[in-house]
C-alpha cells in the first residue's frame, strides 16, 4: 500500500478512536476496551476494503460487516458516522433513552449496521448465513465477521465455523479480535483457548495471525483475493489499544470514565491526529 493510503487509514483509525471516546464521554461509561482494539481493523475495512454506499445502506450486493461482539458498537458507530451513514453529532446519544445507538449493534435502529448482535456467538451463524445467502444469490460481495476471543467460549461459534468450512462459504472473512481479555479477566485464565489459528485451520479455514493494530498488515490480508475456503484472521491486538490509560487498566471491558479524563484522552488522540496531518502537509 502506498504511504498516502496508509496515512489516510491511520488518520481514520484515530478518528474512530476519538469517536469512541466521545461516545463514552457523553454517557459516562461503556465498552471501551474491546471497541478500541478493533478500531484499526474497522478503519481498514470501512476506509479501503469494503464496498458500500452510505446513501443506500441496504444495497443488496454491498460488503457486509457483522460485529458478533455486539459490544463493539461504539467502534462501528464511529466508523459509520465518519463515513456519513448518520450525523457525527448523533454519537453523543449512545445509550441515551430512545437512542438509535444502543450498547449492542441493532440493524433495525442504526443505518449501516448489517446485523443485530449482542448475545455472544450468535453473530457467527448470522454472518455465515448472510454470506451463504449472498453466494446463492450470485452476489460477488464478502461478509466480514468480527468475534471477540472470549466470545469464542460459545459453542455456537464453532458450530458456525464447522458449517462455514463444510459448505465452502469462501466469501466469509472471520476476524478474531484476540485482545487477550474478557469481562472477568485474562482469556488464558478463564478458559484457555490455546491456538486459535490452528483451531480454525483444523476446522477447514485458511487462517492467519497478524498484528491487528497494524494498518499495513490488515490491508494486505483483507485485499488478498479470496481462496477456496473461508478465511480466519486472528487479530493479535491490545484491549484498549491507542489510549495508554485504558490499555494499562486490567479490567477495561466496560469502564466508568469521567468527562475530564475523556477530555484528556481526546486531547492526546487529537494531538496524534494533528501530528499525522502535519506530516502529510494537510
Amino acid at each position: 500500500m502506498d504511504s498516502e493510503t496508509k496515512r489516510g487509514l491511520e488518520e481514520f483509525a484515530l478518528e474512530i478512536r476519538i469517536g469512541i471516546v466521545e461516545q463514552i464521554k457523553a454517557r459516562g461509561f461503556g465498552h471501551i476496551g474491546g471497541s478500541l482494539s478493533v478500531a484499526d481493523a474497522l478503519a481498514v475495512l470501512y476506509g479501503a476494503v469494503m464496498s458500500y454506499d452510505p446513501k443506500n445502506p441496504d444495497k443488496e450486493d454491498r460488503d457486509k460487516l457483522v460485529s458478533s461482539k455486539g459490544h463493539a458498537g461504539p467502534a462501528v458507530y464511529a466508523a459509520l458516522a465518519l463515513k456519513g451513514f448518520f450525523p457525527y453529532e448523533e454519537l453523543k446519544t449512545l445509550n441515551q433513552p430512545g437512542t438509535r445507538l444502543p450498547s449492542h449493534c441493532d440493524r433495525l435502529k442504526t443505518k449501516g449496521i448489517d446485523m443485530t448482535t449482542g448475545s455472544l456467538g450468535q453473530g457467527t451463524s448470522l454472518a455465515v448465513g448472510m454470506a451463504l445467502g449472498d453466494m446463492l444469490k450470485g452476489r460477488k460481495n464478502r461478509v466480514f465477521l468480527i468475534t471477540g476471543d472470549g466470545e469464542l467460549d460459545e459453542g455456537q461459534a464453532w458450530e458456525a465455523a464447522m458449517f462455514a468450512a463444510a459448505k465452502k462459504v469462501n466469501n466469509l472473512v472471520w476476524l478474531v479480535d484476540y485482545n487477550k481479555k474478557q469481562l472477568d479477566g485474562y482469556v488464558k485464565d478463564i478458559l484457555e483457548p490455546f491456538d486459535f489459528e490452528a483451531k480454525f485451520r483444523s476446522f477447514g479455514f485458511d487462517a492467519v495471525t497478524i498484528d491487528g493494530n497494524d494498518i499495513e498488515k490488515l490491508y494486505e490480508v483483507f485485499t488478498k483475493p479470496a481462496g477456496m475456503r473461508p478465511l480466519a484472521v486472528i487479530l493479535d491486538t491490545v484491549k484498549g489499544s491507542g489510549v495508554k490509560e485504558v490499555e494499562d487498566t486490567v479490567s477495561n471491558h466496560s469502564m466508568n470514565v469521567g468527562a475530564e479524563v475523556c477530555d484528556k484522552w481526546l486531547k492526546q488522540l487529537g494531538d496524534e491526529l494533528a501530528a499525522l496531518r502535519k506530516e502529510a502537509g494537510r
Binding site: 448470522l126 448465513g129 448472510m130 454470506a131 451463504l132 445467502g133 459453542g155 458456525a160
Partner: peptide
C-alpha cells in the same frame, strides 16, 4: 441445506439468509 446436528447454528444461518432475501 443439511446443517448437521447443530440447531443453534441452523437457526442463526436461517436468520442470516432471511436478512439477505431468503
Amino acid at each position: 441445506i443439511n446443517c448437521g446436528v447443530a440447531e443453534a447454528n441452523m437457526i442463526g444461518v436461517a436468520c442470516g439468509m432471511s436478512a439477505v432475501g431468503f
